[in-house]
Design a protein around this nucleic acid. Sequence first.
DNA 1: AGCTTATATAAACTGATACTTATTAAGACT
DNA 2: AGTCTTAATAAGTATCAGTTTATATAAGCT
Lengths: 124, 124
Amino acid sequence: MPDLNAAFSALADPTRRAILARLARGEATVMELAEPFKMTQPAISQHLKLLEMAGLIDRRVEGTKRPRRLAKDGLESIDQWLAMLRTGLEKNYDRLDRVLAAMERKQGKQCKGKKHNEQVDAKD
Amino acid sequence: MPDLNAAFSALADPTRRAILARLARGEATVMELAEPFKMTQPAISQHLKLLEMAGLIDRRVEGTKRPRRLAKDGLESIDQWLAMLRTGLEKNYDRLDRVLAAMERKQGKQCKGKKHNEQVDAKD
DNA sequence: AGCTTATATAAACTGATACTTATTAAGACT
DNA sequence: AGTCTTAATAAGTATCAGTTTATATAAGCT
């Protein structure tokens, strides 16, 4: 079982998202990844550690360098979890559609079971 | 521009993910959402506030109750960002495939430019 | 061997986060 | 009006996360 906590908290940081965006363009060393930031190298190394533990990046060894690249494990488990949310969202909208359709049909009539104002919020 | 920080950190908490999973089954009030947890109601209210600010849930008003349901805004912006990662991942694997294909072709031959062991990590 | 480059690790500081308890507000029920 | 229910807010606390400086390790260079 993949660690969703690790994966989502890894993505919650803008520096780490920027690192991933950089890696989406291809492999890069720690120094290359650190360059665009005002942070020190140790800070970047820690971010990379978290990203790796979250299964979002992999590390290679090439001499004294440790180039990172994107990994698919982390992203896959995230996608899997989000899929659940998406289907929930769709089902709920379907339900809402049925409710709205029912209201159309009995338009003008008084709803029987209501004891108080069931006001529906402005949004959607 | 949607707040990815808010969205991803909202998802980084297991309590909040459980709340979303519950809402994927349909609308629920604060008390209903709080019930499975050992936490107090104010704690849940705070979580709901974060989820709402992240655009992941909506609130309705029904008497003294405030039923929550899933919202699509937050999920959409997350999906959009992750799409970037996915394409990056695919492109990188394509590149790797080309490299491996090239190595196949010159199999047995010595690689010219190598000065040191370019050992490739065990994973993938 | 000694110097440099590339990266990791440790300790300390600081600010944010997840809770708690206490309190408040507003609708519903009698 | 008075009370119960549902929920939000405030203030306090304790733990965690992001950073820095300082130091360590290991490969490459001269």
